[in-house]
Design a protein around this nucleic acid. Structure first.
Lengths: 337, 337
DNA sequence: TATGATTACGAAACCGGTTTCGTAAATAAA
DNA sequence: TTTATTTACGAAACCGGTTTCGTAATCATA
């Protein structure tokens, strides 16, 4: 079947193109009877308005871009569900773009978004992102953006984050309370806000309890899982090895388990572990994994709702520009004998 | 900054709009020196072509739609990575749409895609999908579609699947070889191709070894995890309860572990378990989980590559319309003592 | 020198909706 | 009855690229 368009409908009904358009948009200028006829024929002939024509004329794409490092991560996949639950109702579509933790990809994607392809952007920055020039450029083109989870401190954009410092503190304190005296911290990148804030909380807890932080006890991991395993094994091979580990991102959970396994160290007897994670299956790990669980779905919802407000051009209070939702510590087997 | 467009560039350079357009597209009609001038100014003024204008005129969106039930599932998130790795090179964007296992959502999405929003579609059907009318409609509008993993048998569309029957057979045989005599099967839906094929393999293995399949040993699960846990517990409460379980989709892994836990049954001593899953963390479960692992990334790549060929209008052999990539059985602790 | 071919560019149609503006006819108000 | 207003619709501009077609100028060939 040939693609139906407004012109064909107009011909069929002996009406003008503009009348059809108005009728379909339920304009007050058109009589009820005409609207009925138009709607019915449109339905019958399976007419679908061309979204690109509308976007071109209206300067609105009804697409929002979601820029994240990875989708194979339960935080991000849950956040996507939250985002979608909000924007779908408003008639927006979600364009998911993956950076694979690569800064240049992230820049390229935001550059693309300057074209008008999306009306707004939700982003969690890559682990390699340490400057916000690309975000500024986007804002200058009047594309609203809301950052979530992984943000850049110096970029004055709306943001939804968790209480990362407190969470890092809570995780570390939990380990110390359970008998750990030498706790190590695994970050993902020195550039990442969440790693750094969680690290700060870790440091605060360690200092508060008077424990020294060994030079090698703060490990910066990479995107190479094999290399991460080697790094953690090395950490655990030290003469006075750590007896507790705070892993600041979900993907490090298997790394820690694997490394402990290869070093023949038992969790939690020899090493206790807390990991930031949203994995449903954390409870079924061997042993079950104590986690800091982020409100991923709610964060996605909140970030999307903020973006919707920005798109509606409703005034947003400066106080509403930063939303902090607390994470929860879920105690499981990896931290108690 | 105001959005740059071709007209502004033309004015600036004292050239016509058409010359600019051709220069930017590297047309042979334009002299090298003019191309240089145009390119340089475009770069300098940060010109981004409006994708909707191009799409409207060219009848090509350079978007492909990916319709899947869920993104919080490692099979699908890996498949997305595979898809993206292929289509990005060809300059396509990925529009991910989630059905949440709801047939009506799936229909609505495909209806939307009749508008020309996407040039092609990759889909894995929802667990509630049992008819292919919406797919047919799309094909009639000349939108090519490739199904992957979860397909509809009767729809004559290109497809990429795994050897589901053999995998179900292998999983069941593995349990039987490890001493199980009463194996249960957990499907996701009676409508789902993968559930049914895997079930067939299960039945084949059971018959081959002369084991009866109890009336209640084939359980059809739902999207409600709590209900699934109750169903599996009920399964395990039978007087002559199963000593082996084949779980046909990843999300049932936590269900089985939870149910066994609540029934105080040990894995693998009391019940042995094989689950179809791509979870990286399966090896760290308690006990580690024997899986049928699908080549998710490769399937995504293959499906995307097929779609690219269809979009290039290259003739595709009928023999190439169905690609079957084998899954692998990964033996772990949940099936051996 | 005359003719044909090539080069380099511009005018304008086009894609398919949306919106502005103008207007005939019907209705209401004076 | 005249004037003002409302109703219901159409013509055409518009969004921003792309493409077709026409053409003046230059170059090559006979």
């Amino acid at each position: 079947m040939k693609q139906m368009n407004i012109k064909a409908l107009a011909r069929e009904l002996n009406l003008s193109v503009s009348t059809i358009s108005k009728a379909l948009r339920d304009s007050y200028e058109i009589s009820e009877s005409t609207k009925q006829r138009v709607m019915q024929l449109a339905e019958k002939l399976n007419y679908k308005p061309n979204p690109y024509a509308s976007s071109l004329r209206g300067k609105k794409s009804r697409n929002i871009g979601v820029v994240i490092p990875e989708v194979a991560d339960s935080f991000f996949s849950l956040a996507i569900n939250g985002i979608e639950s909000i924007v779908k109702e408003k008639g927006y579509h979600v364009l998911i773009c993956l950076t694979h933790e690569d800064f240049e990809s992230e820049q390229a994607i935001l550059k693309e978004f300057q074209s008008g392809r999306v009306d707004g952007v939700l982003m969690s920055v890559s682990s390699e992102t340490d400057a916000g020039g690309h975000i500024h450029e986007l804002i200058e083109q009047d594309v609203p953006i809301v950052l979530f989870d992984r943000v850049l401190k110096e970029v004055p954009a709306a943001r939804v984050i968790t209480d990362d410092m407190e969470s890092g503190y809570k995780a570390t304190k939990h380990l110390i309370d359970n008998g750990c005296r030498r706790v190590a911290f695994l970050g993902l990148s020195k550039k990442l806000s969440i790693s750094n804030d969680r690290l700060k909380g870790y440091e605060k807890a360690m200092h508060e309890y008077g424990w020294r932080i060994g030079k090698k006890d703060v490990v910066t991991c990479t995107t190479d899982q094999q290399q991460n395993i080697r790094a953690v094994k090395k950490l655990l091979q030290q003469p006075n090895r750590p007896d507790g580990i705070v892993a600041s991102v979900e993907k490090l959970a298997p790394v820690v388990y694997q490394a402990c396994n290869e070093e023949s160290l038992r969790i939690p007897q020899d090493v206790k572990v807390v990991c930031f994670s949203n994995l449903e299956i954390a409870a079924m790990l061997h042993p079950s994994l104590t986690t800091i669980t982020q409100p991923a779905y709610e964060m996605g919802q909140k970030a999307a709702a903020m973006l919707m407000r920005l798109l509606d051009k409703k005034p947003v209070q400066t106080a509403d520009m930063e939303v902090i939702i607390p994470s929860k510590l879920v105690r499981r087997g990896s931290t108690s004998i």
